[in-house]
């Protein structure tokens, strides 16, 4: 945008015109009329353009602060504390306030990366290909390592060849599904999360 050429005289005049103190001295209310400036005239609520808001829970620690997530065109634009929550009453800590930064982090992955054995690089792969490959490897490892009974005859029906780690950052429904499929379905016993770290 091109800007008008402004002389020092113009600038001083503009400053005096915009500065709230002279107007306050003339009796204008510092909270309303005197607070106005050319900049404030153009200020808009940052959530004005949101087309969606949902309730969320802070993804960091376990205090469980409630959040409001505002979005526009399928992208989160703002996250703030939910004032209705008896836990945080609208507040958030430095981590909770960074939730929008987590959702929109510059380093977020959007594609599956695959590193083949002995390779020196990541390669992007389709999601379906990765799911098929992981299902195949899971079956193969399970079949190679499954133990139905110990040498003494005790039934164990487990595999020690597969492990899963993580869960404390996930939803209850996800933990349930992990334990059900990995434990109840595949016979995995190495299933752990951050509860011990």
């Amino acid at each position: 945008m091109s800007r008008d050429r402004r002389t020092p005289f113009n600038r001083v005049g503009e400053f005096l015109n915009q500065w709230s103190v002279p107007r306050q001295m003339r009796g204008a209310d510092h909270r309303t009329d005197a607070a106005r400036s050319r900049m404030s005239e153009t200020l808009r609520p940052r959530l004005e353009d949101a087309d969606r808001v949902g309730t969320s829970i802070c993804p960091y620690c376990a205090v469980g602060c409630a959040q409001l997530v505002y979005a526009r065109d399928g992208r989160a634009i703002h996250v703030e504390g939910d004032p209705r929550s008896p836990i945080n009453e609208g507040t958030l800590c430095p981590k909770g306030s960074a939730t929008i930064g987590w959702m929109n982090a510059p380093d977020r992955l959007s594609k599956v990366l695959h590193r083949a054995p002995y390779s020196d690089r990541w390669e992007e792969k389709p999601l379906d290909w990765a799911m098929d490959r992981i299902a195949h490897l899971t079956r193969q490892t399970r079949d190679e390592t499954f133990v139905e009974a110990l040498p003494g005859g005790e039934t164990v029906n487990h595999t020690l060849g597969l492990a899963s780690l993580g869960g404390a950052t996930l939803d209850n429904e996800e933990n349930y599904a992990i334990k059900k499929l990995f434990g109840g379905g595949l016979g995995m016993v190495w299933i752990e999360n951050q509860a011990r770290v």
């Binding site: 802070c58 620690c61 376990a62 996930l170 999360n193």
Partner: peptide, 17 residues
């Protein structure tokens, strides 16, 4: 005072061995 968003949940519905 626990450290992860659902560490209590992942103990109740345990991804624990």
């Amino acid at each position: 005072l626990r450290g992860h968003s659902s560490i209590q949940g992942s103990t109740d519905i345990p991804t624990l061995y």
